[in-house]
Design a protein around this nucleic acid. Structure first.
Length: 206
DNA sequence: AAGTTGCTCAACCGCTTCTGG
DNA sequence: ACCAGAAGCGGTTGAGCAACT
């Protein structure tokens, strides 16, 4: 009954069984005291082959920021765009480093442990020319993958001054991209969308 | 050297989603 | 349509370590 065990799909990568029965089997040999859920998590986040450990690259930063701006804290979807990174990894990276990088930090005396002082704004702006991130009151910036329509291409380049408007209402529907000109005029520059089925995102430039 | 504070990240927890009976 | 049970997901915690005083 129920969903097919994820291990059926994962046999090729080594779990080879049912997460619920795995700790029982392991316990027979090593006295392992873990529930199946913990085993699954440990496998997914740490033991799985091809997991990348270590520093995130600038490209990965950009992709995380862009996807967070457009779909929010859907870490599994964001992780799907970053081969070798896990949702837990990205979540931790966002909470401990990237958020500070984006939103700045309050004086240490005002902070409690494990707390980010400034509440995350729903908007993120990336300045292509200075290669920096900052908050913006009404718009998002986004990146355009250099030569494909998929974010799986990590060598993203900028669409200068392009903003995604009304992101909250457009989680998976098409999001209009507007280009801001020096004289303040906004021109429709393209459309971005994410598919809820597989979490892939794409940008179509006009 | 000892105590305090802050940071990182693996793991936990509880809720949601999915799927076959 | 409903239920049961398993996986999936995201928020949160806390141990261990580093930096600072």
């Amino acid at each position: 009954m129920g969903r097919a065990p994820c291990c059926d799909k994962a046999k090729a990568t080594g779990t080879g069984g049912n997460w619920i029965t795995l700790p029982q089997k392991a316990g027979e040999f090593e006295g392992l005291r873990r529930c199946g859920k913990s085993c699954r998590l440990r496998w997914l986040n740490y033991l799985r082959p091809n997991i990348k450990h270590g520093e995130f690259s600038d490209d990965e930063d950009k992709i995380i920021c862009t996807l967070f701006a457009s779909i929010g804290s859907r870490w599994s979807i964001i992780a799907a765009q970053l081969p070798g990174r896990t949702d837990n990894d990205i979540k931790n990276y966002w909470n401990t480093k990237l958020k500070k990088k984006l939103f700045g930090r309050a004086p240490q005396s005002q902070r409690k442990p494990h707390q980010i002082s400034s509440s995350p704004s729903s908007t993120v702006l990336y300045n292509c020319s200075s290669n920096t991130y900052h908050t913006a009151p009404t718009s998002f910036s986004c990146f355009e993958p250099s030569n494909s329509s998929s974010f799986s291409n990590t060598s993203a380049s900028c669409l200068t001054d392009v903003s995604i408007l009304q992101p909250q209402e457009s989680l998976f529907g098409p999001i209009q991209l507007h280009q801001l000109h020096d004289n303040g005029v906004q021109m429709l520059a393209g459309e971005a969308s994410c598919r809820s089925s597989d979490g892939s995102c794409s940008i179509k430039k006009n």
